[in-house]
Design a binder for these strands. Structure first.
Lengths: 188, 188
DNA sequence: GCAAAAATGAACAGATCGGTACACTTTGTC
DNA sequence: GACAAAGTGTACCGATCTGTTCATTTTTGC
């Protein structure tokens, strides 16, 4: 069966929000870019914020599925998977439509820490941290959470650098740093 | 002589943009928060974007002055100064009004790479990179630019993490990672 | 103290914002 | 094929957006 109108709306809205920003994307623009009537939008979502929240939730599963799958495909051992994260990120940064991390943008445009959209963005990062932490433990790190946090900091920094400066070597530099960290922390 | 009205405007506008975001801060709100009439604003700046640009330029010098001064105060040798950057960032992140990096926000809200505001944000990062690169060279790094880039990635990642997740240990974790990097790269 | 410059307040323009009302058409199902 | 559900188009609401106009008041320099 085909995707429901609601799923189609959320998917297309996600693209529009990512391409232009949340506040900068008005509902009338969404009508044009999604091809779905405003009436229909407000039948599925009470407010723009609710639609944004759904779009971010979609992106959360989309991105984690993609990243974790790619890490597994590019790396065998847990250690290799952790390093492969930066290769995967490098592929993403080189894509034409790359605009940085949607969750960082969301947390920036909805700054209040108790705003649902901000909370959702933070939850995504926590999910990433959890996965990295598991891999770090499997890799034999004495303090997997600390290592995972450091790798996640490198990931965020690389993406921000790629977005703001358009720096093409950011993910490679982050990987080089991560390699040193892993060599230092892991017995091998 | 006291600060000119223009400087007062830019300074207060900077605070408002930082606290609420660029698109979310309307000119009428600026009138209230700065106490300066709209007529006067548009006599000093042709458009809101021009005002934003001036605010970002002010922040550029403000932030670099503060950070470099603090690095120098907290660290003696170039190596110590590089590590002290994360202590300084930690102080900043713990401040009540901390909302993350204004330049990352600016680059997020004005995504087009050729937009003047985006360019200004990127220029700020380039300035930081230059300073770190000089320090890395003084510290005796074989590849100062690569090391500087890695440290800058850690810095960006730590700030994003502190902002999005409200993570208090981000700068300390970044410093721990930076310490390992410096130990690995620098003869000592 | 006087003239020029700077700043003010308030009203206004035209566009766009998020969101709603309503009559109509398409779609899916039994 | 009928009926209900879902989707559409358009016009509209009040609020807000950036930016302007203009007459008045405040500040400044000489």
């Amino acid at each position: 069966m085909r995707a429901t109108k609601r799923e189609e709306l959320v998917g297309k809205a996600l693209l529009a929000f990512y391409a232009h920003g949340f506040h900068a994307t008005g509902m009338d623009r969404l009508v044009v870019e999604t091809g779905i009537s405003k009436t229909s939008m407000y039948k599925h979502f009470r407010s723009k914020d609710d639609l944004i929240l759904a779009a971010i939730q979609l992106r959360d599963t989309q991105f984690r599925d993609w990243l974790f799958r790619r890490m597994k495909a590019l790396g065998g051992t847990p250690r290799e998977q952790l390093l492969a994260m930066f290769d995967a990120l490098g592929e993403w940064c080189d894509e034409p439509g790359f605009r940085g991390c949607l969750f960082v943008k969301a947390a920036s445009e909805f700054q209040e820490p108790d705003h649902p959209i901000h909370i959702q963005a933070a939850a995504h990062k926590a999910q990433l941290l959890g996965h990295l932490s598991e891999l770090a433990a499997l890799a034999g790190a004495a303090e997997p959470k600390a290592l995972a946090r450091q790798l996640l900091i490198l990931k965020e920094g690389a993406i921000v650098t790629a977005q703001v400066e358009g720096c093409r070597e950011a993910t490679a530099q982050a990987k080089a740093a991560a390699t040193i960290l892993l060599d230092q922390v892991l017995a091998h």
